[in-house]
């Protein structure tokens, strides 16, 4: 039984005033934590609101912001079409369909939010490229579920690193930065889930890649850093190096990401 249910079942009228007050404040605290979805309606930007708020707040070239968003849009197109094709192909185990339908829903929404935002900034959204998810015949993800999962992991972990690498480039607009962060953490949730479905940890240890997929090594290059903000973290904590590398995700540059993504883009 959940703690909240338990708290609700206790007849607070029987408690004396002092205990009751203390008790209710605890209950209230947990309620606040668990019911934040109510606040979501207030806190989260609805579709379209990003564009209304997207005017740059700090001095920064909006061209740079648009360029970053178009870069992200290409990745989101790639992810969205990958899951769309995967769900249509029948390669996904029945018990995992709901998971990938949820991921696909998010990636599609991201493509719409990004296009909307780019338009509102006066930019032109990039056209969706044609994708080849076999990377020229190297992979067969629409017929092999193991390969489907492996590439999904690579795409999600790449997405996390790609958004992280653009944070500084969109920081000139508080609204765009916040929306980008809100997408970034969703990509990380996806990555964690897919990694765990593959029997891996949800987080990246050292720069360990995907067994049998050497093309994905670039996705994990540099993830083994134990230096953060120019500090050697091993020197300030008892946690071992593996744990430290897991505890921080690292950014990738646009070029690094493009070298991976281009394997799956035709032309």
């Amino acid at each position: 039984m959940g703690l909240l249910k338990l708290l609700n079942e206790i007849d607070t009228a029987q408690l004396d005033k002092e205990v009751k007050d203390q008790f209710l404040s605890r209950k209230d605290a947990l309620g606040k934590l668990s019911n934040f979805s109510k606040k979501l309606a207030v806190a989260a930007l609805p579709l379209g609101a990003v564009s209304t708020l997207a005017g740059p707040a700090r001095a920064q070239d909006s061209g740079q912001i648009i360029s970053s968003l178009n870069f992200a849009l290409t990745l989101e197109f790639l992810e969205y079409r990958y899951y769309e094709k995967g769900l249509a192909s029948g390669v996904i185990d029945a018990e995992d369909q709901a998971i990938f339908a949820q991921i696909e829903k998010h990636e599609e929404a991201h493509t719409l939010v990004l296009q909307d935002t780019i338009n509102s900034l006066g930019g032109t959204p990039v056209e969706e490229p044609a994708f080849d998810f076999t990377a020229g015949g190297t992979f067969d993800p629409l017929n092999s579920y193991a390969q489907f999962l492996a590439l999904s992991q690579a795409f999600e972990d790449t997405g996390v690193r790609a958004y992280k690498g653009q944070a500084g480039n969109v920081a000139g607009s508080a609204a765009v930065l916040t929306a980008a962060l809100q997408i970034h953490s969703v990509e990380a949730r996806h990555a964690s889930q897919v990694r765990r479905m593959r029997g891996s940890k949800g987080w990246i240890t050292q720069d360990n890649g995907i067994e049998g997929v050497s093309q994905a090594d670039a996705v994990y290059a540099g993830e083994d850093s134990t230096t953060q903000a120019e500090a050697n973290v091993t020197a300030v904590t008892e946690i071992d190096a593996n744990g430290i590398t897991e505890a921080w995700d690292e950014p990738l540059t646009m070029d690094q990401v493009n070298s991976v993504a281009s394997l799956f883009i035709e032309g």
């Binding site: 996390v160 944070a167 920081a171 962060l181 970034h184 990509e187 990380a188 949730r189 996806h190 950014p251």
Partner: peptide, 24 residues
């Protein structure tokens, strides 16, 4: 702040791990 971009990147490196945790 606009001058604190390294801190922004640092926060970004941590938040995605928190999101991985949340999902798990």
């Amino acid at each position: 702040s606009a001058d604190g971009i390294p801190y922004l990147v640092q926060a970004g490196k941590i938040v995605s791990v928190e999101a991985r945790h949340a999902a798990a």
